[in-house]
């Protein structure tokens, strides 16, 4: 009788096709041009990013295209200490919710080119894009965000977006 087996590797894997839909596709195609495209609601004027084609608050189609700024404000963030097999960023690193200027919903992305202890709520950041020749219809066209050397945003300017 040889040594008992104590554990087995049982990866769980799901491979599926994701169809982005019209609104999200516009957003992705915008990234391929180095632009960040949201959609505005005709009733409440909120700008959704990424766009979904409707306003969940008003329940109406929201298809007006609105280009938002590649600069924004860190609303909340977390320091990640667990390495990932799919993200080749050395730990610890920071993921943050970033409220881009002109948008009403923060997006989630990496903060780099900044010591982690300097990341804070209200920090002003800007998108760092991949080189122009490498832009594609994917969120990865934005490599990360980095501090933009502006004064911190006032809490009141993003308190409704946390």
């Amino acid at each position: 009788m040889s040594e008992p087996v104590t554990s087995i590797r049982r990866p769980v894997r799901l491979e599926y096709d994701f169809t982005a839909g019209r609104a999200m596709s516009r957003f992705l195609l915008g990234l391929a041009e180095g632009r960040i495209l949201g959609q505005g609601c005709p009733e409440c004027a909120r700008v959704y990013l990424p766009p979904r084609g409707t306003c969940p608050t008003c329940g109406v189609p929201a298809e007006e295209e609105v280009e938002v700024s590649p600069r924004g404000t860190v609303t909340t963030f977390c320091v990640v200490n667990i390495p990932s097999q799919v993200l080749v960023v050395p730990v610890p690193y920071v993921c943050a919710n970033i409220l881009l200027d002109g948008a009403d919903v923060p997006i989630f992305h990496l903060i780099q080119e900044c010591p982690i202890e300097e990341v804070r709520m209200g920090l002003r950041v800007e998108a760092v894009w991949v080189p122009a020749g490498e832009l594609k219809a994917t969120f990865e066209s934005i490599r990360h965000f980095r501090p933009s050397d502006e004064p911190d945003a006032a809490y009141d300017s993003y308190r409704e977006h946390l």
Partner: peptide, 11 residues
């Protein structure tokens, strides 16, 4: 107008 991509979710 519409994009599609293969995603893999694995644990």
């Amino acid at each position: 107008e519409t994009l599609s991509a293969t995603h893999i979710l694995e644990y």
